[in-house]
Design a protein around this nucleic acid. Structure first.
Length: 228
DNA sequence: TCATTAAATTGTT
DNA sequence: AACAATTTAATGA
């Protein structure tokens, strides 16, 4: 039933003992989400931990005035929603929306908590994941205060190559310039200028609906320095 | 395989 | 934000 090539590349499965593995395989379900549809919504009680098999998801919120912010992009290969699951008494604080037609794999919260209650390796994996997210969001605040616009775009793009959160990410990101703008909190125009700057530095190559990273090391470096 | 059309993305003001 | 230009994807001969 389950896509084998995908299941062979789920890092946390290696933490499980045979019992746990059997239950996980039995209880995982597949969910297809069309582009622009909700995976789950703000205010709901979270029920699953989600893995992205294919497509692209965003964590997003909308203000009363209709303004929208995108907290993060969640590409294929990554798992999300552990934080809402672990804040048991609280409802979900963001919408998860498909940016493309997407296929998800869903682990029921009971199973998630069952493994969490008995498996130390799995705990370590989850702690690391939450810590990576913490680092990501601190970085976002930091870059808003410290970095110039071009460097912020560099940091956002480099951040998509976090090995733990986004394992096996290909260097060619299927993201439009508008979508990069949502992630950075910039207009499409300003994003376009920043991307061209990064391309002229030789860090990325831009093409239709795609950003290809050619020099990740310098891209990261740029996102960690201050230019004025 | 090629031409036509629609949809998505990018460029410009 | 609106409009134009460009690129890709889908359709059908």
């Amino acid at each position: 039933m389950l896509s084998n090539s995908f299941m062979n590349n789920v890092p946390w499965l290696e933490c499980l003992d045979p019992d746990e593995l059997a239950r996980v395989h039995q209880e995982l379900t597949i969910k297809q989400i069309a582009k622009n549809e909700y995976v789950c919504r703000k205010g709901e009680i979270p029920d699953y931990w989600y893995g992205v098999i294919s497509g692209l998801i965003k964590a997003n919120n909308v203000s009363h005035g209709g303004k929208s912010i995108t907290y993060m992009a969640i590409p294929s290969g990554s798992w999300f929603g552990e934080s809402p699951l672990m804040r048991k008494e609280v409802v979900r604080s963001y919408d998860a929306i498909a940016m493309r037609d997407s296929v998800l794999i869903c682990l029921p919260k009971e199973t998630f908590h069952w493994i969490l209650s008995k498996n130390i390796e799995f705990n370590q994996y989850i702690i690391q994941q939450i810590n990576e997210r913490l680092f990501h969001f601190i970085s976002m605040i930091e870059s808003e205060r410290f970095l110039d616009t071009n460097s912020r775009v560099a940091k956002i793009i480099a951040g998509l190559f976090n090995q733990h959160l986004y394992p096996g990410q290909s260097t060619a990101l299927k993201l439009s310039q508008e979508e990069v703008g949502f992630l950075t909190g910039l207009s499409r125009q300003r994003t376009n200028m920043a991307l061209k700057k990064l391309e002229s530095l030789g860090y990325i190559k831009i093409s239709y609906g795609e950003v290809e990273v050619t020099d990740l090391e310098n891209l990261r470096k740029m996102g960690n320095e201050t230019y004025e």
